[in-house]
Design a protein around this nucleic acid. Structure first.
Length: 577
RNA sequence: CGGGUAGUAGCGCAGGGGCUAGCGCACUUGGUUCGGGACCAAGGGGUCGGUGGUUCAAAUCCACUCUGCCCGACCA
């Protein structure tokens, strides 16, 4: 490609709102352009990179036996009603009516469509297992898109769906994805870690996320450096020490103005782990009788030295969604904020108690009376509720596997894999007959990779003060040919020789000053740079540099150019294969 | 959905009741320059986000609204 003919131009200044470097350079180098909040144009350079990522993904998916399909972005609302997600997913899913007043949705994922395809094809164990994938647009009306391509509303995703006759088959295809994903990220050059994760709206039990660890990440990853335990904070476990002793008699004490755990502890001269604190949320629950959604107050009870992980709380009480409770909603259930606890609260509330509280004795808790707390409260004797792990892991807490201190880091989720089980197949009637003629639901898995987000992470990982430096496997072109000489014929010949040898070249043939050309070459950051200038040309040579190390120059004989460049590209490619 | 902030040329910004709306980059033409974002000269490009109002007069003041960005809520 000739830069004189290239559609996009480089920008000298970053457009407003480019808050991280990777995003800024993608904009400035002319890879992408924002059209609306969380909606982006892919310009020619950006699309070339995306196509390379897709090719790697496609190759690895085909290697594990996945067949490519394409399911529509627009789905009939009916299949989403079959699984209930038409109702359980809030405004993040966009809906519209067609001309005949039928409910339609813009698919934010394709479990329903995939299950629909499978139920038509799969009737016998002989037709299983099946695995297919697609690379397709998703629409999720995120309330707050940000950070360029990291968090967008419209995006391309590779998603695959597996169908098995038993758990063993699911685990096999799950493992195949687990490994294939590492190969995909490796070939793209993105360092990732796989962490145990929550299955969220997807349902199912076992799930992993692939995290690119970086400060721009919005997920918190809990890691044990000693034994390698890693998990998303949403599900991360840790070992809790509980203090048990004989139950003492409950006793009400005056604690004026002690509305926080800190106040309470200094007033009573006790440690936070001797208290139980309560968090009040409103959860939306589906009523089993009439299928309608109704709000209930949830009291999450945790020991004073820890915090509640809302995701764990939501899972423990099986609420559809959670939000913080307003003061009047708390009071309406007989609870006094600041002095609140489940003791004496209305029977309508859902009480979820962390196992640190149920396992500890004689904790101080609110008396639901302004200015009073109870001493020596005990779960089971003084109040009841669901017992679960609802505590949020934090730096320094003990690893659940080995006891070493845990650390926190930030990460971006670039891929995920879920063992779905029978959630969708049962709901949508995707059944098969086994060897004994018994009708069973197909066991499913689903597996995603955010293609654009992957590129955004690569841009974040591979840049310096002057621009991008994408790995050769995903860079839009392999070589940037910078011509500084007046004699066009020689540069033209180099350009066509390289192209004829199958090398992808971006040829800067513009009538620009050397400074402009070098700066743009840095910004776009193609892995190999060839500079043709009078200095070297006199000796029949051309300069070759790597974007990753601009300080080192190789002088090549023009006669050896093609073979040298090919050699260099394959050297760069080697660690990525 | 709350809180903040902004919308003036392709991009980055200035102007803040008054006569022809400005600057840098980018763009066009001519010339000089030519290994790290060159220089000179001459040009082109604007419904000042939109609607309504106040006023002799609105980019400027007021109201409403749309859109972007940041923080939070939210997020497979």
């Amino acid at each position: 490609m000739r830069m004189s003919e290239l559609f996009s131009r480089t920008l000298r200044e970053a457009p407003n709102g480019a808050d991280c470097k990777g995003y800024e350079y993608l904009l400035r180098a002319g890879f992408i352009k924002q059209l609306a909040a969380g909606v982006f144009d892919l310009l020619p350079m950006g699309l070339r990179s995306i196509r390379k990522v897709e090719a790697i993904v496609r190759d690895e998916m085909e290697k594990i036996g996945a067949q490519e399909v394409l399911m529509p972005l627009v789905n009939p609302g009916d299949i989403w009603k079959e699984t209930g997600r038409f109702y359980s997913i809030d405004r993040e899913m966009s809906r519209f009516k067609d001309r005949n007043d039928r409910d339609m949705v813009l698919a934010m994922t394709h479990e329903e469509a995939a299950t629909d395809m499978a139920r038509a094809e799969v009737d016998s164990y002989k037709r299983l297992p099946q695995l297919f994938f697609q690379i397709q647009t998703k629409w999720r009306d995120d309330p707050r898109p940000r950070a360029g391509l990291i968090r967008v509303r419209e995006f391309t995703m590779k998603d695959s769906y597996s169908f098995d006759k038993d758990q063993e088959g699911l685990e096999k295809v799950y493992k195949a994805h687990y490994d294939a994903y590492f190969r995909i990220f490796h070939r793209c050059g993105l360092p990732v870690v796989a962490v145990g994760s929550d299955s969220g709206m997807m349902g199912g039990k076992v799930a992993h996320e692939y995290m690119y660890l970086a400060p721009i990440g919005e997920d918190t990853i809990i890691t044990c450096d000693k034994c390698g335990y890693t998990a998303n904070r949403q599900v991360a476990r840790f070992t809790k020490k509980c203090h048990q002793e004989e139950m003492k008699k409950i006793e009400k004490v005056s604690t004026p103005d002690a509305k926080t755990i800190d106040d309470l502890c200094s007033y009573l001269k006790i440690k936070p782990e001797m208290t139980a604190k309560s968090l009040f949320m409103i959860g939306a629950f589906i009523n089993d009788r009439n299928g309608k959604e109704e709000d209930k107050l949830i009291i999450g009870v945790i020991r004073g030295d820890m915090d509640i992980e809302e995701n764990k709380l939501q899972n423990a009480c099986k609420a559809n969604s959670l939000r913080p409770a307003r003061e009047e909603e708390i009071v309406a259930n007989g609870v006094i904020p600041g002095f609140g606890s489940p003791i004496g609260a209305s029977k309508n509330v859902v009480v979820v108690v962390d196992d640190s509280v149920s396992g500890s004795s004689n904790l101080v808790a609110g008396a639901n009376e302004s200015g009073f707390h109870y001493l020596n409260t005990n779960f089971g004797r003084d109040y009841d509720g669901i017992v679960a792990d609802i505590a949020s892991a934090a730096t320094g807490y003990a690893c659940p596997e080995c006891g070493a201190p845990l650390t926190c880091s930030k990460g971006v989720e670039v891929g995920n894999i879920f063992q779905l089980g029978v959630r969708y197949s049962e709901a949508m009637g995707c059944y098969f007959q086994d060897e004994q003629g018994v009708r069973k639901p197909v066991i499913m898995g689903s597996y995603g990779i955010g293609i654009g987000r992957l590129l955004a992470c690569l841009a974040e990982e591979y840049n310096d003060d002057n621009g991008l430096a994408l790995p050769v496997s995903v860079a839009p072109y392999q070589v940037q040919l910078v011509s500084l000489v007046k004699d066009e014929a020689i540069a033209e010949k180099m350009y066509s020789d390289l192209q004829n040898a199958g090398i992808e070249v971006l040829f800067d043939d513009r009538k620009e000053s050397p400074g402009v050309k070098f700066s743009d070459a840095d910004l776009i950051g193609l892995p190999v740079r060839l500079t043709l200038g009078n200095r070297s040309l006199k000796e029949g040579k051309v300069e070759m540099k790597l974007r990753s190390n601009l300080n080192e120059t190789n002088m090549l004989d023009i006669s050896d150019l093609v073979s040298e460049v090919k050699d260099c590209i394959s050297k760069l490619q080697k660690p990525l294969s």
